[in-house]
Design a protein around this nucleic acid. Structure first.
Lengths: 177, 177
DNA sequence: ATTTAACATGTCAAGAATGACATGTTGTCA
DNA sequence: TGACAACATGTCATTCTTGACATGTTAAAT
């Protein structure tokens, strides 16, 4: 399961509580890579602890439990990460699905959708570029993490932006996608 | 649910059997947008038929059932597609997750992974470019569909390729992601 | 004639994810 | 002092997805 590896990976960069991990999943990792809410994170942390891949290093205020990866967990994470690309890897993206189904719409609706997509991704790329530019080099424990993710996101938005512009051009030509 | 809309969308472009839809999901749509196997497709077609969004237009050899979208189904599809971007849209991508967890590895392993990613995406982009270039304009019923998806895929691979090269550069600098 | 591959559909148990519900704490502002 | 927002964890029923199993047909090659 990928969620377990996502948690292992985040904890390997820096120990954290379930609550902090939940917030992490609201950032880039959840937007581009893997979504998860606290209702799946908490039970999964429990299972990882039961398997000896993570452990609670200390309990803080409000019942907060800080988890850290064990050596065994780090081993498991490394072997998963270094595996060759899995051809049956999970892929699920509702937004991209919408784009792929464009051809099912009338040309006028297609243009409407593509224009929206182009605008949205253009804006998103610009905003993200600004955020990444202002990030202090060597900030928090996940600074490198955020930088990599940010650069990934920028390129992602730009790619979709370029695609939407290209598609608009080609639909305009003959009224067909 | 997105699977129902994916099926509705594919059928809206051209009527098809469950078997044909299953093969469709092994192509670009399954690789970039939404995965599904026949074990989820067949029951879902049944549910869509029960809701009156699709119907069987005729039964062919080997028990094959050809489905088509009803007016109601087309309506439902259109309203789903034209919805504003959903901030809680499902996102799940195992490959991208691996990239995001790079920081959890030692610099040497990071470089290994990034080099692999760069090579793989570079090759994939080139191959896909060749496939798209040789596609006959105005081929089958889903020709436009394949073209859009192909162009999307090319840009996707290129974006990840560029990102991996950028990341390799930055890790090389100071041994940190 | 037989075998094999591709065609074609289906069920069902097990596992994963979501959304609704539930509970209690700590710090801050009025 | 009281209210509120943010902190922090959890359960559970429902829904969705996967993988194993099951069944039968048609066309082509041997």
């Amino acid at each position: 399961m990928s969620l377990s590896h996502a948690l292992l990976g985040l904890l390997a960069v820096a120990p954290a509580s379930g609550y902090e991990l939940t917030k992490e999943f609201e950032q880039e990792i959840g937007r581009y890579a893997w979504q998860a809410g606290h209702t799946s994170i908490y039970p999964e942390l429990g299972k990882l602890a039961a398997r000896g891949l993570v452990h609670v290093t200390h309990e803080g205020a409000r019942g907060a439990k800080t988890y850290d990866v064990t050596d065994e967990g780090r081993e498991e994470l490394r072997s998963w990460l270094l595996q060759p690309p899995n051809p049956t890897a999970t892929v699920r993206n509702e937004q991209v699905l919408r784009m792929f189904l464009l051809s099912a719409l009338e040309p006028a609706d297609q243009r409407l959708m593509l224009t929206r997509i182009a605008e949205h991704t253009g804006r998103a790329a610009t905003e993200l570029r600004a955020v990444v530019a202002t990030e202090t080099p060597g900030g928090g424990p996940r600074a490198g993490f955020g930088r990599l993710a940010g650069e990934f996101g920028i390129r992602q938005y730009e790619a979709v932006h370029e695609w939407a512009l290209w598609a608009l051009d080609h639909i305009a030509e003959d009224g067909q996608a």
